[in-house]
């Protein structure tokens, strides 16, 4: 039964048809599917299918990634309010754009997917200082700092990921907190994440959510 919902829901998201995607979830609820099953058996597997699709099909586009995240986040938020008991959160991420960078699209995609996958996300917004990222990660007991940069100078600048890495090292936090980066410059140079001191990177927002979740789970094991 869930396979059909997942298939129909993902087709709607791929066609960027939000109305239809919401209708499919409504139908599932009417058919007796619980809010918990909607999230864990439809939404999360759907995002996972989208993640798999992106890795094999280069023709997916930003609009589809955006819709995947937005619709999933919206439905999850609605369903969470109806859960019988609060769900278990798998981990916490501190997210923001690098210092000097005001572009928030990528961050929004990552956040939407993570929230639906039961990852707690603390959004520091745009133009975030390195110290603020690290202080927030410590204060919020986060496992991941995720930094989005749209421009070369904000990705590679001394005040961005490089400084976060150096602060993590200075404060002895490197084993506890992992650094993930994403954004346009990393798409052009796949080794750039290494040069800015990050532990990992992703070419798009949906894949970033996948990598972040894997890093959290790795840390737990």
């Amino acid at each position: 039964m869930f396979e059909t919902y997942i298939k129909d829901y993902n087709e709607a998201v791929f066609e960027i048809d939000k109305e239809l995607a919401l209708e499919i979830i409504e139908t599932a609820l009417k058919d007796g599917v619980t809010p918990e099953q909607v999230v864990f058996d439809i939404i999360i597997p759907s995002i996972e299918e989208m993640m798999a699709e992106i890795s094999i099909n280069a023709d997916t586009n930003l609009a589809q990634h955006f819709m995947t995240a937005q619709i999933a986040a919206e439905i999850t938020e609605k369903m969470l309010a109806k859960f019988e008991s609060p769900p278990e959160i798998i981990g916490r991420v501190i997210i923001g754009t690098s210092y000097g960078d005001l572009h928030s699209l990528g961050k929004r995609i990552v956040m939407g997917c993570l929230k639906s996958m039961m990852v707690d996300v603390v959004d520091l917004g745009v133009n975030v200082k390195a110290e603020t990222f690290v202080d927030a990660a410590v204060a919020q007991d986060a496992q991941i700092i995720a930094i989005s940069s749209m421009m070369v100078h904000t990705a590679t600048g001394e005040e961005g990921s490089l400084k976060v890495r150096s602060l993590l090292k200075e404060r002895g936090l490197e084993d506890k907190i992992k650094l993930v980066v994403g954004g346009a410059p990393y798409r052009f140079d796949h080794e750039l994440y290494n040069k800015v001191g990050a532990d990992s990177w992703a070419a798009d927002g949906v894949t970033a959510a996948k990598i972040i979740r894997e890093l959290i789970l790795e840390g737990k094991s």
Binding site: G100, D101, L102, H103, N127, M151, V152, H153, T154, G157
Partner: peptide, 12 residues
């Protein structure tokens, strides 16, 4: 506009 000495100006 957010100007930067090391890169491209940003719409602020």
């Amino acid at each position: 506009i957010l100007f930067a000495d090391n890169g491209v100006p940003n719409v602020a």
